[in-house]
Simulated assay, not measured.
Amino acid sequence: MPTCDHCDAHVSEGFARVFTDDGGELRACPNCSANAGIAEVSRERAYQSQI
């Protein structure tokens, strides 16, 4: 079962398929970010990890 790379919570296969980035990272999930902002949080965390 896939997990969030930020908080290590389990997520569904479908959720991982939609929100995993091109590098295979799942940087946000409903457990560690607001449902309405998962994509934005994911992009922000990806950006911050590159700095």
Rank of each mutant, 00 (worst) to 15 (best):
A39E: 04
D5V: 02
C4W: 08
A46V: 05
A46C: 03
A39H: 04
T3A: 14
R43Q: 03
P2G: 08
V41G: 00
A39M: 04
D8M: 14
C4S: 12
I51V: 15
V18A: 11
I51T: 14
H6F: 15
S42C: 05
V11T: 08
S12V: 08
E13C: 12
N35Q: 13
Q48K: 05
C32P: 04
F15T: 13
F19R: 07
R27K: 09
A9K: 13
V41K: 09
R17S: 13
L26T: 06
N35W: 08
E25D: 08
A36W: 02
V18C: 09
D21L: 11
V41H: 06
E44P: 03
A36P: 01
G24N: 10
E44K: 10
Q50T: 06
E44L: 14
G24E: 08
D5T: 01
S42G: 03
S33V: 00
A9L: 14
Q50A: 14
R27M: 00
V41Q: 10
S49C: 06
N35T: 12
N31W: 11
G14C: 13
F15P: 03
S12Y: 12
R27L: 02
R43G: 00
C32G: 07
R45T: 00
E25T: 14
C7Q: 10
S12Q: 11
V18G: 03
E44C: 07
V11S: 05
C7I: 06
D8V: 09
G14T: 13
G24I: 05
T20A: 06
F19E: 00
L26H: 03
I51D: 10
R43C: 01
E40W: 05
C4P: 10
G23Y: 03
G23H: 06
G24C: 09
V11H: 06
I38W: 02
T20V: 06
Q50H: 05
Q48E: 10
P2M: 11
E44A: 09
F19I: 07
A28D: 00
G23E: 13
A34E: 08
D22G: 14
H10N: 14
A39Y: 05
S49E: 14
N35E: 14
D21K: 10
E40K: 07
H6A: 15
V18Y: 09
E40I: 07
A28N: 02
R45K: 11
C4D: 00
L26Q: 06
R45W: 03
G24V: 06
A34S: 14
D5Q: 07
D5L: 05
N35F: 12
A46F: 03
A36V: 01
R17Q: 15
A36T: 01
H10Q: 15
A9D: 15
V11K: 08
A28V: 03
